[in-house]
Structure formats: C-alpha cells, structure tokens
C-alpha cells in the first residue's frame, strides 16, 4: 500500500478546502471499501480526509414531514432506526441484506452510496479495466460476466453498482445533499450515479472534493408499503445477482401509485420508470405486473454469461409487487 497522509478537519468547509488542494486525495468514512481497495492497489490516494465525525450521525424529521439521514449514520443504526423500519421498510430490508453485521457497524450512509463496483476485473490490478485504468480495455465484456449489467452498459464498461441501500433509496425518491467547492446542492438520487458511457472511471456526478452530508426521504405515506427482495448465490453475505425495491399504493384493487428500482442490473441503481408508468391506474394482477416488467426489460442486452438476469429480474419484480399488493389491501 502506498503511504498516505491522514487529515481530519473540524468543519465541512475546512475539509473541502483541504481536499480541493490535493487532486489525489479521498474521503475516509467507515473505510470498509476504500481500505480494502488500498490494500489491493486499486486505489492509492495521497491523502485521506477523515469525515466520519464531521457529518451528522442521526436521523431527524424534516420540515415537510420527511426524514433526513446524516451521512455518518452507520448502516446498522439506520437499519434499526424505528422511523425507517415503519415508514420506509424497504431501506431497512435492503441494508440488512447487505454485507455482514461487522461491516454494517462501520459502513456509513454516505460511504455506502460511494462504494465501488465489485467487478472482479476492477479489483484485480493485473487485468485491463477501463474503470480502474481508463483506456486499458474491459476484461468483462468477453470474460467472466455473469454478475454484470444487462441495462445501460457501454462498450467501455459493463460493471454493476453494488449497493443494496441505494436501490431502495432510488425507489423511494431520495435526495442526496452535498457540500462542495461551489456550495451546497440537493441531487435526486437517481441522478447521483452515472451510466458508464465513455467515462466509466466516474461512478457519480460528484466533483472532486464534494462531500455527501445527508440523504433526505420525502414524506410519501405509501412508502410504508415498501419492500426489498434480493436474489444472491447464498443465503447471506453476498452481493445481489438481481434485487428489486418497490413501493405500492393500492386502493380497491387498483394501483394508485408505484415505485420500482432494480439492483444488480446496471452501472447505477435502475429506476424502472417504464414499468411504473405501465402500472399506474391499472388493476392489481400478476399479468399486469409481468407485462410491466417485460416493458422495462425490453431494452436489456445480455452478455455471454448473464442472460439469466432477464427472466430473473422479471420474476423478482412480479413477486415483489404481488407481495406488496397483498399487504397493501
């Protein structure tokens, strides 16, 4: 591991100016991903700025009746938070399906959003990877790609985003609050992560030195009827092959409103807006769920090893929406 300078600042603005002067600097929060990537030689920052004690570590109600989650709230604290469990259960379920208890105790809300892909080639410095080393090529397109993207990929990168929490937050219309050199901004979470295009090295739209300080959830009542379903290769402690977060508002057997996001299928949490549009105002039925899922997956382009994800995603969407229509009645 390359030597690095450790810094800690007392306030957000001090931290942002410290890192602005260090192009190879990075933020350190729980460290569960970046420490590992530094050991692997995938990331080699000159400086780490510790932000774990800098951003809020609590969950509070906002003026509009929604909820603000401090960026330093750990994954385990957030999953156990009463308000989250009752009003946004998909987020609690997503967090509890990710990583291990030890990792959740360290990992933070902000860090979870910014974790890097678990593509095996990204993590192996002996192989080409456009995300790790722009222009070196993508080893996964012709290689071991059963875990890779079926939607929104490019000829430069087919990696998937690994977060469970972000998928649930994407379904539930979250906003990400950041502080950067140009001040504060509030980003719809759907716009935070990027598709790879020709710049797969950029996971998000954040500028260098822009710090996530909080995630805000809207006060939408039917989000209490939300769910996260994850399919993986073993019962626990594994990344998603496919996951679905959804929320549904059902009245008299008709879908008044619905939110759906998919994990494990793209370079970012995939908001299934086409499926949502197809379902609004329609009666609850398995046939309608299936038709909507198929509309969303029409654009899927499987690789040599991951065509299974198309029927899998369709089935997990149908199952999740069926569960929600039962519970929502």
């Amino acid at each position: 591991m390359k030597p690095y300078r450790y810094e800690r600042s007392e306030d957000v603005s001090g931290t942002i100016s410290t890192i602005a002067e260090e192009p190879e600097g990075a933020f350190l929060a729980g460290g569960t991903n970046i420490v590992d990537l530094m050991k692997l030689g995938v990331m080699s920052p000159d400086m780490l700025v510790d932000v774990r004690r800098l951003t809020p570590d609590d969950v509070e109600e906002t003026e509009d009746g929604g909820v603000r989650i401090g960026a330093a709230v750990t994954n385990s604290d957030l999953a156990a938070e009463r308000t989250i469990r009752s009003r946004y259960p998909a987020i609690s379920e997503a967090l509890l399906s990710g990583a291990s208890a030890q990792l959740r105790n360290m990992a933070t809300t902000g860090g979870n959003l910014l974790q890097r892909t678990r593509c095996v080639y990204f993590q192996d410095t002996t192989t080409p990877c456009n995300k790790r080393e722009p222009g070196s090529g993508c080893s996964a397109i012709e290689g071991h790609n059963k875990n890779h993207a079926i939607l929104g990929a490019s000829e430069h990168c087919v990696a998937t985003h690994p977060s469970d929490m972000a998928v649930a937050m994407t379904a539930l219309d979250a906003f990400v609050v950041t502080h950067g050199p140009d001040g504060e901004r509030r980003i719809p979470i759907e716009e935070l992560h990027r598709l790879p295009g020709s710049e797969p090295e950029r996971d998000t739209i954040l500028e260098h030195g822009e710090l996530i300080t909080a995630v805000e959830l809207p006060p939408t009542a039917f989000f209490s009827n939300s769910k996260y379903r994850k399919v993986r290769e073993r019962a626990s402690y594994a990344f998603a092959l496919v996951s679905v977060a959804a929320a549904m508002d059902v009245e008299d057997g008709v879908i008044r409103d619905v939110r759906i996001a998919l994990g494990g299928v793209a370079h970012k949490p995939w908001r299934a807006t086409k499926a949502e549009e197809a379902l609004r105002g329609e009666p609850v039925s398995e046939a309608n769920f299936r038709a909507a899922a198929e509309i969303e997956l029409e654009d899927a382009e499987p690789l040599s090893g991951n065509a299974y994800k198309i029927p899998l995603a369709r089935n997990v969407i149908v199952r999740t929406l069926s569960d929600l229509s039962e519970e929502g009645r």
Binding site: Y6, G31, V35, D36, L48, Q102, L103, N105
Partner: peptide
C-alpha cells in the same frame, strides 16, 4: 461494537 479490525486504520 463488533467490527472487522483488518479494515480499520
């Protein structure tokens, strides 16, 4: 709290 001490500086 239980943590992985190998991933903490």
């Amino acid at each position: 709290r239980r943590v992985n001490s190998c991933l903490t500086f």
